[in-house]
Amino acid sequence: MEIIAKGAEANLYLENGVVIKERIRKEYRIPEIDETLRSMRTKREAKLLSLARRAGVPTPVVLDVDTKRKSITMNYIDGEKVKYIVDTLSKEELNRLFSEIGSLAAKLHRSHIIHGDMTTSNMLLSRGRVFFIDFGLGEVNPSLEAKGTDLLVFRKSVRSTHFRREKEILKAFFAGYRSEYPDGEEVIERMKRIERRGRYVSAR
């Protein structure tokens, strides 16, 4: 079994052409919390991967869920992490890519799917299509608050990781988001409100 990634919370193996994502135990947290989190996230991730695909967002197909081992078996996406290609793209390419990502985010939100960790580490570009992965922190939630927070997480991650191209990326992303989501503007407004709230409190 070949290990393809050791993420923050999971080990990923490639075996016979399929990916096994196993959420490993964390010694730092008490077993009660650890067990609950790993079970819940494994189940949620499997469910949301399927729901997202039905909403029109490319995701790996879930082949099996092992709730004991806290693992998900899914098909392998032969592609690159969006995080790693951002700096190699031309202005037009970047614009096209993030407007596509924005419209995929909109498709999720239109179906009330919250990704929970929307960053470029969790998007794979494969043969011109963007796949969303890593839904373990996600949920189904129709509220503006949840959707606004989802967008804020994305915006903040762009700010910290892609600071060189932050403006271009966000402009394309939000344009794509709006174009695919009639109520998108409301969500974007909520995102800004949540951010202001946080900053106010953090200044105390």
């Binding site: 927070t149 600071f163 409190v201």
Partner: peptide, 19 residues
């Protein structure tokens, strides 16, 4: 630290832990 700044990778979205 990344390229000239201390970038904020994670933070509280509302109140601080001590608070």
């Amino acid at each position: 630290y990344v390229e000239g700044r201390y970038r904020v990778f994670g933070e509280t979205l509302d109140i601080a832990l001590g608070n």
